[in-house]
């Protein structure tokens, strides 16, 4: 499976450096190594979800408790979380650090992923969610820190889109 172990490690290490202690996740191909790294790390609380929207509540609970968290999901999981983001995170000003694998963009071979790729950014913009991209290993740490900083200062969800160039080796 040509998902990049090296890039996954860079992302995981960056989250740890940002003091993230809880990660919620729902598996998808690009996230397998990241989820395994979280599972293997005794300092990280990994919550494997049935549906991504649960992660909004779990991250809110962690925020109330003073624990920094991150949410790992595919862009279709973001679509499945929208009500929770609007009617919890936006309504109650909850910071969320969402790492979203951006499937269905240039290079996508799986037909079933392609519609989600068409709507991801327009939905983020329409929801006024600040977002940026993780597409190169050399700026991952800085960008994750910046995203977390904005989420916490603005008390709102932010998104980092995990790109094929970073996550996939072929």
């Amino acid at each position: 499976m040509p998902v990049s172990v090296a890039s996954s490690k860079v992302i995981f290490d960056a989250l740890k450096k940002c003091d993230v202690r809880l990660m919620s996740a729902l598996p998808e191909t690009w996230l397998v190594h990241l989820i395994r790294m979280a599972d293997d790390d005794p300092e990280m609380i990994l919550v494997r979800l049935a549906k991504e929207e649960e992660g909004v509540g779990i991250s809110a609970g962690a925020h109330f408790a003073g624990v920094k968290s991150a949410m790992l999901m595919q862009n279709h999981g973001f679509l499945a979380s929208i009500n929770g983001i609007v009617s919890f995170a936006h309504l109650y000003k909850i910071p969320l650090l969402m790492l979203i694998s951006y499937r269905g963009t240039f290079g996508e071979r799986d037909p079933w992923q392609t519609q989600g790729g068409n709507v991801t950014e327009s939905l983020l913009r329409s929801m006024s969610i600040p977002y940026s991209f993780l597409d190169r290993a050399d700026n991952v740490e800085k960008r994750i820190r910046q995203a977390q900083t904005l989420a916490e200062s603005s008390l709102q969800p932010v998104a980092l889109l995990l790109m094929r160039d970073l996550m996939w080796e072929e």
């Binding site: 809880l22 649960e54 109330f64």
Partner: peptide, 12 residues
């Protein structure tokens, strides 16, 4: 999401 919030609190 109340139950999910409780889970996040309980684990934290």
């Amino acid at each position: 999401l109340a139950s999910s919030t409780g889970l996040g609190l309980a684990l934290s």
